[in-house]
Design a protein around this nucleic acid. Structure first.
Lengths: 326, 326
DNA sequence: AACTGTATGTCAAACGTTTATCATTTTTAT
DNA sequence: ATAAAAATGATAAACGTTTGACATACAGTT
């Protein structure tokens, strides 16, 4: 059996109370007993049972992370950063791939509650989940409206869309399309699209909006894109995420459209993966380091003081990454 | 406060015992009381406290996942799949990015123990961690030797290396290099390299091994690759992971080397990401679906019966994905 | 000698649940 | 009507830890 407090106490020749005091640094303790206790803990490879501790009212030091799917490099990088930051603060992370399935998301929420997580960071796609309100749990959202009093951290999507359109135009494009996800209220890609539309309108150009459902497989998406590019003589395309931009580049190559002479291309996200392995792609970078730092810091504030007042929205500036595609 | 068993009992007008029985489906229960209890649970949004349950000796239904870094798409996809499989079996996942830091890995292990995880799946890079043996916890390893009696699941690295070399040769290459990570005992990339060397030897060709340390940033790696390609007239390169293959393709483009006429290229991993967004890349696909299924299934076996005998090694077949780079 | 501060111990309650035991009541079958 | 089976309850112990109340012992100061 695993060693318990009692075993440590026996080996160290002290009482359980003393051992517990050592562990929690509580009350008077001599250096000598501390050392004895630590030695005993080491010898037995003792690990306090977190279940028992948190039953006592201690925090679980667990945080739930709900994202649609971390096999998407953007979320992978975000989750990786968040995990690192939280680990440094002595928190552990329970990972949830909600797969954009509201029921799964609901199940995950329940599960996280049952596991007594101290808080949740959510960046899932499902909107209007009333459950988020019910539990009085600290929650911070990335880029999605979940419910009132759940703060939202996001990049400046509007400005990003504007910047993308501007970049395309300045690179010589005048028939500029946007490939974006299905727009539903509260979705962040809306902001990107609005920024794009606003810029085009200001310049007297017509927006051309193509909605590619988020759930579409890359193969189907490729077909769609191919059809679109064949039927419209666009010379500039803004893709509201980098992966779609890669598909578009692939299609362009198939159609013998040279980038950036025939077709200019701007993506969105600018993960390390894209910057490192696709330095050619012009894209709008979301400040992932700042985003994750802010998400974590806000969550920890809420955990420390459930009633602390936070802003409703935190919008972080984006940055143009100049490649050669626009 | 959160509702507890007692509150549910009161509302349903039954005893705690009965509620507990309903929850655990234990003993005689009438349909009527069951419904009453379920209704009360719903009304209160009751969630059993998993901490308390597992203190009772119940499993925590928690599994620890230790990988070097999920911002690497390969691990992201693997972790994503594992999480989905485990969630379907009612397990939750605690994510650990060990960052290839032995101390962090050790800390994570401790932490997972303290959280009473039922088991661990590890694919971290650090070798010879004696801690793995100490705790009598079910562990399954991906592609790394951790300790005796920790089963290893991996793809057929040797055959993959062989296949890659063969593919390059059959595509017309005769000066074939390998770009691989630093080799240390127990590392899986060794197998890939050995397969590559074996094939070349069999064909009477000289192996050219270039070790690019795993920790190198993409920018530095790119420089290294550039130097290598400039100083050797290779017409075929096998990269022991797809990301390095992408870098090599980028460098080739800079050096005006046409792929596959001047330079043939084969990668390794074949994640969905690569297959979807880089269909041109010829690569060796690790069967991620099978790998994750097997990892999970072995772990669950070990959890169900700590003494069940498992093989030491499970080697899953790889598959050549024919792109146009070789 | 009396006091103070430091260091440890004993004991017990509490956290929320499970589970066993025993008891009681209701239902069903004969 | 009687026995067996089904349904529920009351009670308490257990899981491993924390924490408070209280007691005791010894060191160093006055």
């Amino acid at each position: 059996m695993k060693p318990k407090l009692n075993d440590v106490a026996q080996l160290a020749g002290v009482s359980v109370t003393t051992v517990s005091r050592v562990i929690n640094d509580h009350g008077y303790l001599s250096e000598k007993t501390k050392q004895k206790v630590f030695a005993a803990m080491r010898e037995l490879h003792y690990q306090p049972n977190n279940m028992a501790r948190s039953l006592q009212g201690k925090n679980t030091q667990l945080v739930g992370l709900i994202f649609s799917d971390i096999s998407n490099p953007f979320f992978a990088e975000l989750v990786s950063r968040i995990e690192k930051l939280l680990f440094a603060k002595n928190y552990k992370v329970i990972l949830c791939n909600s797969a954009d399935d509201p029921q799964k998301e609901r199940d995950y929420l329940q599960m996280l509650m049952a596991n007594q997580v101290d808080g949740i960071i959510a960046g899932a796609h499902n909107l209007g989940i009333e459950e988020y309100q019910q539990y009085g749990l600290p929650i911070i959202s990335f880029d999605r409206y979940l419910s009132d009093n759940v703060p939202i951290v996001s990049s400046d999507n509007f400005n990003g869309g504007w910047l993308a359109a501007q970049t395309l135009q300045q690179a010589g494009a005048d028939k500029i399309a946007i490939f974006t996800g299905k727009s539903h209220a509260g979705s962040p890609t809306n902001g990107r699209r609005e920024g794009y539309e606003a810029y085009l309108k200001q310049q007297g150009l017509t927006p051309h909006v193509h909605e590619l459902p988020f759930e579409l497989s890359p193969a189907l998406k490729t077909m769609e894109i191919r059809t679109i590019l064949e039927n419209h003589a666009y010379n500039g395309v803004f893709c509201s995420d980098d992966l779609t931009a890669l598909l578009t580049a692939n299609v362009a190559q198939q159609l013998k459209l040279t980038i950036p002479t025939d077709l200019r291309l701007v993506g969105y996200d600018g993960t390390a993966l894209i910057r490192n392995y696709h330095p050619n792609l012009t894209t709008i970078e979301q400040p992932l380091a700042d985003i994750s730092t802010l998400l974590v810091s806000l969550l920890l504030q809420r955990i420390a003081d459930a009633n602390c007042t936070l802003e409703e929205k935190y919008v972080l500036p984006v940055k143009l990454i100049k490649g050669i595609t626009a």
